[in-house]
Amino acid sequence: MVDRLLKATCQTVHLGGFSAQLVPALTIDSGDRIEVETFTGFTVCDRAPAAFAPPELLEIRHNLPADRRVGQGPHLLTGPIFVRDAKPGDVLEVRLEAIWPRLSMGFNVIRPGWGALPDRFSAPALRFIELDLDANVAEFPRQSGILIPLQPFFGILGVATQEVGNSSVPPGNYGGNIDNRHLQPGARLFLPVQVPGALFSIGDGHAAQGDGEVDVTAIETAMNGRVVLVLRKDLSLTRPLAETPTHFIFMGFAETLDRALQAALEQAIAFLEQYLSLDAEEAYVFCSLAVNFHITQVVNAPRKGVHGLLSKSLLPGAIAL
């Protein structure tokens, strides 16, 4: 294992999507540990207080090269990271060792036409929210006494696809804008590799978010993290799968919540068949009895997300992925 540092600069970030055409920001071997910097708020930092927009972010905002603008999404991502010997059909294991905000401020924005209630909340609204990093809370509304615990995570963890200019907004089988708040330190995310080298990118730091992310954003903020990327040639997946210290997480993404739920449920059934030797009907019944399905997000058009949580405490023994 080699320890690497990947800072966020004009040469190591990209805007708007994923692309196999991007020059890698870093090349690593399987098992290397990377301390990574990320920024967010590319489109709002010119209107932000100084606490949110340090000189490094403003440098990126004004001088990002044209070839690092690859899609129509608003997200600024650090990467891509090229993993030697990664090939389509492999699985990239992302071990999340540590995640921490790098600034004491985040933002939330309502975008016209987006969100769960676009007709009712049709006017744009941008708010900057202070983060108390010592107490690990954010007060919202300001001076209300309502304290929201901070639970930092990366909204976007994904690999490149063959699609040119793949937008950063919708999640998919490559991962991407998953927005799953359970991907905290100690979790592992398993992503199907789509292109040689995997080309993994990370960003969209969230200091706190509720399931659904209903107004289209969380408390979005610059985030640092420490991850280990492990190439898994012994696994075969068609969509992302995650594991936390307490749960396995099954994910489904689709244009409707019904179809997203069906996709997450199918993944759960396949997992139970493979690792617990249940037949399909037994697995289906078990999911009805013991797997908790939640709305991950409803705002990353055109795909919504559903995830199912299987508690490890229900299992007769450890499952090693």
Rank of each mutant, 00 (worst) to 15 (best):
D258H: 10
Q72N: 13
V227F: 15
V228N: 01
P302T: 13
L289V: 00
F248Y: 14
G308T: 09
N224I: 03
L15Q: 01
P302G: 13
L278H: 07
Q21K: 11
G115L: 05
R239C: 08
C45E: 02
P185V: 06
H247N: 14
K87C: 04
T161M: 06
R142L: 13
I110W: 06
A86P: 04
A301E: 08
L117K: 13
W100K: 06
E266P: 00
N136G: 13
V291I: 14
A51L: 13
L117H: 12
N177F: 03
M223W: 03
A50H: 09
G115K: 09
L321T: 02
V306Q: 10
D29P: 00
D29F: 11
V94C: 14
Q297S: 13
T161K: 04
L183T: 03
V230W: 01
L229V: 03
L276K: 07
D3P: 00
L309S: 09
Q262L: 13
D134H: 13
S168I: 04
G158Q: 02
D279Q: 12
V13T: 15
D46L: 11
K7C: 10
H206P: 13
D258R: 11
R188H: 10
N136I: 00
V169S: 09
P170L: 08
F52I: 04
V36W: 01
R226T: 14
L276Y: 10
A135V: 00
L183G: 03
L26W: 07
F153R: 01
E37T: 07
E273A: 07
G305W: 02
W100R: 03
F153I: 02
Q267V: 09
E213S: 08
Q151E: 12
R111V: 14
T296S: 12
P185G: 03
T244P: 09
L57A: 05
Y284L: 13
P240N: 11
Q274M: 07
E266A: 14
H182T: 07
S19W: 06
F293I: 02
A222W: 08
A8D: 11
C287P: 01
F52C: 05
T296R: 02
Q184V: 04
I148C: 05
L150N: 08
D119C: 08
P49T: 07
P316C: 00
Q162S: 06
E273D: 12
R259D: 15
C287T: 08
L261M: 02
G172T: 13
Q262C: 06
V193T: 04
G197F: 08
G308Q: 05
H294C: 01
A160V: 05
A320R: 10
F154H: 11
V137Y: 04
F107D: 08
A280Y: 12
A53R: 11
I295D: 00
N136V: 01
T256D: 12
Y174W: 09
S277A: 15
G225A: 15
A264I: 03
R111K: 11
T78K: 03
E243A: 12
L96S: 07
T256A: 12
G71R: 04
G79A: 10
L310V: 05
